[in-house]
Nucleic acid binder design. Structure first.
Length: 264
DNA sequence: CACAATACCTGCTAGC
DNA sequence: TGCTAGCAGGTATTGT
């Protein structure tokens, strides 16, 4: 379900709600989501620890605890994280003081919850590219990495290596904005288009974070990213720019939507 | 090393 | 109605 803007909205809501609380008990209902760790390890590392904050790195949700360990949650495709009641797809429940509980729901059980030492965390996040909304996301290194890459443009963005946080929807949308064919090897994309891509990533994500936060604050989780969709999920429909048909192709087993006339 | 294929899971929906 | 095929906002691991 979530890409950077959705994760950011979840994180900022949770930060306000649970910072400073203590974890009374950890309930792992589906051990598969903590693999390769065990329920016992996760519980022993997190129980009786204080939550120091909630933050985001790429699509990872990070909850640093007193004592040096950090909870790392990845929602993958269908994970959700909220304060409130558990249900049939709840996989992990963190019981907090003040009779609140933080519930990790994941119908497909692809998402993960781990409790990591500083060293393990560094290793888990190694290889993640810069945060697109931070100063670290500089134009020059991005252009240079692009020039050297043979990956199709869409996979370049999805790899998380050159910029963190884009997923299937935003990768497609941003390529449409920059007028880049998702199949084109990144190294063959003209430099001015790579620059346009860098700008589009920042602009689009900044706007998306803003609107998704507003939507989440109103508990409207469904329509959150709706406004960005110029191409995603619009196979056969007219391109908003030229009127041509939006196409759907498959890349690395995932759907890619684009306008073959506007993206070259 | 780069890159492609596959594994990991379950639920929903469009079309017989 | 009931079944099936296809698809899902992701990434780690395995294979070439």
């Amino acid at each position: 379900m979530p890409e950077l803007p959705e994760v950011e909205a979840i994180v900022s809501g949770l930060h306000r709600a649970i910072k400073g609380r203590t974890i009374r008990e950890v309930e792992v209902l589906r051990p598969a989501v903590v693999k390769p760790q065990t329920a016992a390890l996760v519980a022993s590392r997190a129980t009786k620890r204080r939550i120091e904050g909630v933050r985001r790195r790429g699509k990872n949700i990070l909850i640093p605890l007193s004592g040096g360990y950090t909870i790392r949650i990845h929602l993958r495709l269908s994970g959700e994280l909220h304060i409130g009641d558990s249900g049939p797809s709840s996989r992990v429940i963190l019981h907090l003081n003040g009779s609140k509980q933080l519930v990790f729901d994941e119908p497909r059980a692809l998402g993960t919850v781990h409790v990591l030492s500083e060293e393990e965390l560094a290793k888990a996040l190694r290889g993640l590219g810069p945060e697109p909304l931070s100063r670290e996301f500089k134009l020059e290194p991005f252009v240079e990495a692009a020039r050297k890459s043979k990956l199709p443009a869409k996979l370049f963005l999805m790899s998380q290596k050159y910029v963190a946080g884009l997923g299937n929807i935003y990768a497609a949308e941003v390529l449409f904005r920059a007028g880049i064919d998702p199949r084109k090897p990144m190294g063959k994309v003209r430099a001015d288009k790579v620059e346009a891509l860098h700008a589009a990533i920042r602009e689009m994500l900044r706007a998306a974070v803003k609107s998704v936060k507003i939507a989440y604050n109103r508990r409207k989780y469904k329509e959150a990213a709706g406004f960005v969709r110029a191409v995603y999920g619009r196979e056969g429909e007219p391109c908003l720019r030229c009127g041509g048909r939006i196409r759907r192709i498959e890349q690395a087993g995932r759907s890619t939507y684009f306008c073959a006339r506007c993206q070259r």
